[in-house]
Deep mutational scan, measured.
Amino acid sequence: TTYKLILNGKTLKGETTTEAVDAETAERVFKEYAKKNGVDGEWTYDDATKTFTSTE
């Protein structure tokens, strides 16, 4: 399943996707990605669109 991440950081904005077996796995991948890029925001998830959003 393809999951999408929308980053709305103070210094980094953008989108990326990952293939994962479930939302929990995708969330771990995306949170590590955000951390590596210095984004520490509030997380939301929309199951209908398989989209995570992190907003600082």
Rank of each mutant, 00 (worst) to 15 (best):
F30K: 00
T18W: 08
K50D: 01
T53K: 06
T49W: 03
W43K: 00
E19I: 15
G9L: 08
F52V: 00
Y3M: 01
T25Y: 06
D46T: 04
A34R: 02
T2E: 09
T55R: 05
L12F: 15
G9K: 03
Y33K: 01
T25Q: 13
T53F: 11
F52W: 06
T44E: 11
D40N: 14
N8E: 08
Y45G: 00
G9H: 14
S54R: 03
T53C: 06
E15R: 05
K35P: 01
R28M: 11
V21M: 12
T49R: 06
K4Y: 14
E19F: 15
A48V: 11
N8A: 09
L5K: 00
I6D: 02
D22T: 05
Y45H: 01
T53R: 06
I6N: 03
K31P: 00
A48I: 11
K13Y: 13
V39Q: 04
T1G: 09
N37H: 15
K50L: 07
T53Q: 07
E42M: 12
V21F: 12
G14L: 15
L12R: 06
E56P: 06
D40W: 13
T16L: 15
T44S: 13
K31A: 05
W43D: 00
L5F: 08
G41W: 15
L5W: 04
K31D: 02
S54K: 03
E42W: 11
Y33F: 11
V29D: 05
A23I: 13
D47L: 07
Y33E: 03
G41F: 06
T1L: 08
G38I: 03
E42K: 11
T49I: 06
T51F: 01
R28P: 02
W43G: 00
T51Y: 01
I6T: 04
G14I: 15
K10T: 13
T53Y: 13
T44F: 10
V29I: 14
N37P: 01
A48M: 10
E32Y: 05
D47M: 09
E15I: 13
K35V: 09
K13R: 12
T25N: 08
E42Q: 12
E32W: 06
T16D: 03
T2W: 12
A48C: 11
E19D: 11
D40H: 13
G14F: 15
T53E: 05
K50Q: 09
K10W: 13
E27M: 14
F52T: 00
E27V: 06
T1D: 12
D40M: 13
Y3N: 02
D46V: 05
K50P: 00
V29M: 10
L5A: 03
T55G: 05
A26V: 02
T25R: 06
T1C: 13
D22W: 03
V39R: 03
D40G: 08
A34S: 06
I6F: 06
D22V: 02
Y45A: 01
T11R: 07
L7V: 07
E15K: 06
L12A: 09
N37Y: 15
K35W: 10
E24G: 08
E27I: 08
E27G: 07
Y45W: 02
L12P: 04
N37G: 05
A26C: 02
G41V: 05
I6P: 01
D46W: 03
S54H: 09
Y45R: 00
F52C: 01
N8P: 03
K35N: 09
V29W: 14
A26E: 00
T16H: 14
G41P: 05
